[in-house]
Nucleic acid binder design. Sequence first.
DNA 1: CGACCCCTTGAGGCTTCTCAAAATCCGTGG
DNA 2: CCACGGATTTTGAGAAGCCTCAAGGGGTCG
Lengths: 240, 240
Amino acid sequence: MAQIIPLHRASAPSPCDSCTARSLTICAGLSAADQTKMAAHVATVTLQPGQMLFSEGDSADHVYNITSGSMSVAKSMPDGRRQIAGFLGAGDFLGVSTRAEYKVSAEALTETHLCRFPRPAFARLLEEVSCLERRLLAVAENEVAAAQEQILLLGRKTAMERIASFLLLQAARMKARGVTDNPVLLPMTRAEVGDYLGLTIETVSRCFTRLRKLDVIGLPAPDRVQIRQVEQLRTLSEAA
Amino acid sequence: MAQIIPLHRASAPSPCDSCTARSLTICAGLSAADQTKMAAHVATVTLQPGQMLFSEGDSADHVYNITSGSMSVAKSMPDGRRQIAGFLGAGDFLGVSTRAEYKVSAEALTETHLCRFPRPAFARLLEEVSCLERRLLAVAENEVAAAQEQILLLGRKTAMERIASFLLLQAARMKARGVTDNPVLLPMTRAEVGDYLGLTIETVSRCFTRLRKLDVIGLPAPDRVQIRQVEQLRTLSEAA
DNA sequence: CGACCCCTTGAGGCTTCTCAAAATCCGTGG
DNA sequence: CCACGGATTTTGAGAAGCCTCAAGGGGTCG
């Protein structure tokens, strides 16, 4: 279980202009003038593994953009059952929705750096930077498509199909980010994979073992998955 | 199983200005001039129950807005397993995502009327009507939040919890639309409820029966659910 | 070296699915 | 108005997949 550490325990936000220049995807392609406008409002936040950025029900005061690292976005039930809705990485947004409260919790998986915008500043930014809205809309549409895929996975796929789909998805995401996609890196624990796929850690572990015995994957380390037979994995991701 | 009827078998699209004036939510609050701009590009489409508007993989040539009726948005697997990602009603959008192909199928549950925008016209509209993008962003954010709720339901809730959550959600949606929210109307079959909740029709039916025997709900007709004990239903929606 | 955490493996139980059949609803036509 | 046929819903019995509970490795860090 993740520790819940108040945000102020994280390294204090500080003025930041490098994040816009480096890897804030939203800024890629913006004019220099627009980038400057954004940088003026930006602060950085650093989180250690297991630290919460915000929790379900917290007042939604800020919008965040991940500079580096990886996070999970989750919802919980009163009895402790948890479901991770998605994993986020560099360039992804948190808290864009215009609500009074966050509807999900956000937790760091690895050391993570974020850009933080106070909501009013972010709203002003939307006015000033004309193409920002278009970008956010495209991002949101992608999120919807990813969520629909996840809904199919959770509603209709078997444990093995979920694991196979997950590995392929993770590989595709790494490739899209320009990182080596084989072996696949899993910056999350088995518990987090399970909470993402709607399974228990035991079932996740058993599926990995079965895939290894079938020689479809290799497991050089618990957080490293060597894909040996992509086609077989693809078949397993939708075979009944 | 829904019949697959090519779109051209539906009533032919025809010029439409009434739909913008009446219930096209996107237009509510727009200036008269902006509404006129939109109407110029709009055609209407009418679908009968079971008719497909488009299927997964179809070329995404149009954007739609539902004027009246209800539809389902679904994804399928090669072996026929189907998962409904959501139900849509008056005011909801279809096909906003800027992709070459639709990633889901859209099917009418009841007789449905839609406004249809050719994609290029819709893109122009985004330029011309300044507040449209903001609206679409808000809509997309709501879709993401709804999808996350659905992900929690599919990943972690029991059959009974899913049914209870579904009934409460359906009641809330009807209330939001200004329709009577008790009894709840279910414009979809048990098969569609099952495909939405990741269950079989038998399990859906058994849960309804159990709720009826507990006197939590009444079933005056298969498509009508009288909620007798809201609090009990709320408890059941997250009790293990 | 030992404690802790995470991962793996095993045995048994429970929820849900599958397969099958009966009951109900609904539109059609006599 | 009633009888009929098809589709939908309900109910039942048995099977299967995943979860729960429990114990045993393996790695890391103090």
